[in-house]
Design a protein around this nucleic acid. Structure first.
Length: 636
DNA sequence: GAGCACTGC
């Protein structure tokens, strides 16, 4: 079945992983999902017949149920109306268990008797924090039952986590049968120097040699995707007349909703879809009808360096869990093949899973939230994976600098309030000091606009030049924060219409999100009795308010058009991001503040606004004064 | 001269 230059692999996405006793082939050709359930007590498996009774039994016997859903068991269902990305409906696991075990706030006798944590294997930051908090809560309140849903590969680590330091009867694994078709896995005999070209060629060969079924290619980012599509379109004229024409489709988060939805359209007669995607198709977006997966074996992740305070976007090899999940995308509707663009030896050396987000992200806001829950002793907190010590120290330092904790490490009154707002502490400070600068209305909008991805949609080529002209219509001399304010206000003024966005090269999805985030932040401001005054066009007041949140992100213009930070590594060359209105313009004062700094090919600052340097002096005195020789303060 | 993914009710 596989192409001849491929070394034949083993059958089934999980079968190379037999070392793990948890994993089994799960091929139910046409049976409905969940035709049976089985319960694993420790390592042994007990079949059960009617899930209702047995689940109730398990809920009584064990405090924590780890529900395992095989890749492709249909736990997560696509919901096209809610758009491809955000459209995640309540999982079938949830509805299956819902009768007895879902969150039941309307249950009179003992409300919140149980909680379900879905897709725990994705290990998002808040999944990890919740697991830690919930384990702690269960020690004090064993009547609270937990249901943790997870992919098969990760289930034992959750089991070990809950059993560790408690008792074997604390947790058990419940496994759901899936309806997964077998996926044959093929590896390259030799590593490839260029997986983008290799991916294009492989897709071309599959099209020539294999029958029906669409192709899904996993690459790491937009640049690679565009190049791969380009190479595929160059190969197209060589396609023999007898084989299907290829329908080439990119898939990544930067596309418009319409472009994203195109991947769900069935291929026309006589054509075959080739979807070239980022990691978005690994878990967030599920496309039916995929028979062939081509896996580059790489993924782009954001890694935070607590020592430099710099986040970087890095391409790294994936993991066994990730490769398995990707392969599974080929077996949802029929048996499939996964072509891994790396050797079996490389696969065997892959880490078990990608390091969880908590180990590679800024912990400032999460730590504030833990503190507000009364979790002060971070050494005693039971992490599923602990964040690096350096990251915790840096976070505490940031919290102190922002006035969120005192020198004793305890939450300050403002820290207690800010902990309730789901924004970065700098933004929160801006919201609070808007009272002093009388610009709450505008700061609220800016805070919302800074929380979403870039709203300008600039395509390549000639349409891109037109889009650039549209972008300039919103430009504010002072910089990007005020430009974003202009965009939001115009969007609101013209009835929040998608047509208006289209004609101005703006993302309707993004701006709609900004509207909802703004509404939400507005509630916090009202709760804290912060006035919603307008600065009435006084941009200076507004910029001074911005500095109250961003004073640690100050930078100085140097002759060659780049910037240097006023804090941390002062030798680091900072480049203005090309989407900034200050990209081609020198600020009169020579000083700016910026929303964020990120390392890609270069270290770039995004969302930049000109300020006067003496405004920086209004802030951080206490902090800088105490900091002395640079040793860490306020580690509580 | 550039954009892994997600999230806040």
């Amino acid at each position: 079945m596989s192409l001849k230059f491929w070394k034949p692999g083993t059958s089934g996405p999980g079968s190379s992983l037999d070392r793990d006793s948890q994993i089994e082939e799960n091929v139910v050709q046409s049976a409905p999902a969940y035709s049976s359930l089985s319960i694993q007590s420790q390592r042994e498996r007990l079949p059960i017949y009617k899930h209702r009774d047995k689940l109730l039994y398990c809920m009584e016997e064990y405090g924590v149920l780890i529900v395992v859903g095989q890749t492709g068991c249909g736990k997560t269902t696509r919901e096209p109306s809610a758009t491809s990305v955000a459209g995640r409906v309540a999982s079938e696991v949830g509805s299956l268990l819902g009768d007895e075990a879902g969150l039941r706030p309307n249950l009179k006798r003992d409300s919140h008797r149980s909680l379900q944590l879905d897709e725990a294997h994705e290990r998002s930051l808040y999944t990890d924090l919740l697991l830690g908090v919930l384990k702690k809560i269960r020690r004090k309140r064993p009547s609270l039952r937990l249901i943790v849903s997870s992919a098969t590969l990760d289930a034992t680590s959750f089991l070990d986590y809950f059993i560790s330091g408690t008792s074997p009867s604390e947790a058990t694994i419940v496994s759901l049968e899936g309806r997964m078709f077998p996926v044959e896995v093929a590896y390259l005999p030799e590593p490839t120097p260029d997986y983008v070209t290799k991916a294009a060629n492989t897709a071309f060969e599959i099209n020539a040699k294999h029958g029906r079924g669409d192709i899904l290619i996993f690459l790491t980012g937009r640049e690679e995707i565009d190049r791969c599509l380009q190479e595929l379109s160059e190969l197209a004229p060589k396609t023999p007349r007898s084989v299907p024409r290829l329908m080439l489709l990119p898939l990544h988060a930067g596309l418009t909703t319409d472009e994203q939805l195109a991947v769900f359209e069935p291929a026309e007669r006589g054509t075959r879809k080739v979807i070239v995607s980022t990691n978005i198709a690994e878990a967030s977006v599920t496309i039916e009808g995929i028979t062939f997966v081509i896996d580059s074996g790489f993924v782009k992740i954001r890694v935070y360096n607590p020592t430099t305070g710099l986040a970087s976007l890095t391409t790294v090899p994936t993991s066994i869990a990730s490769a398995t999940q990707r392969a599974g995308r080929a077996g949802r509707t029929s048996p499939g093949i996964c072509y891994r663009l790396f050797t079996q030896e490389s696969f065997d050396r892959l880490p078990y899973s990608t390091p969880p987000e908590i180990t590679r992200t800024d912990m400032t806001t999460p730590l504030l939230q833990l503190k507000s829950l009364g979790i002060d002793n971070l050494m005693k907190f039971e992490w599923v994976s602990a964040p690096p010590a350096e990251s915790v120290l840096r976070a505490l330092e940031n919290l102190f600098a922002a006035g969120m904790v005192g020198e004793d490490g305890r939450l300050s009154p403002v820290g207690q309030k800010v902990a309730e707002c789901p924004v970065d502490v700098g933004i929160a400070r801006m919201l609070f000091s808007s009272q002093e600068y009388q610009c709450g209305e505008e700061i609220l909008t800016i805070a919302a606009m800074c929380s979403i991805q870039d709203v300008f949609i600039i395509p390549d080529g000639a349409p891109g030049a037109l889009a650039e002209l549209e972008r300039r219509k919103f430009t504010a001399e002072e910089g990007d924060h005020l430009t974003l304010l202009n965009v939001y206000n115009a969007f609101a003024r013209y009835g929040r219409s998608s047509g208006w966005c289209k004609s101005h090269a703006l993302s309707f999805r993004g701006l709609s999100r900004a509207v909802s985030i703004r509404a939400q932040l507005k509630k916090y401001m009202q709760r804290f009795s912060l006035p919603l005054e307008s600065c009435q066009g006084d941009a200076k007041r507004l910029r001074r308010c911005l500095v109250s949140g961003y004073w640690r992100n100050g930078a100085r213009w140097v002759g060659d058009g780049t910037y240097r930070s006023v804090r941390g590594n002062r030798d680091q060359t900072l480049y203005v991001h090309p989407t900034s209105v200050l990209f081609t313009r020198k600020p009169r004062s020579g000083w700016v503040i910026f929303h964020e700094m990120e390392e890609t090919k270069k270290t770039q600052i995004r969302i930049v606004t000109e300020i006067e340097p003496d405004w920086l002096l209004d802030h951080g005195h206490q902090y800088e004064g105490n900091k002395g020789t640079g040793s860490v303060v306020a580690v509580g």
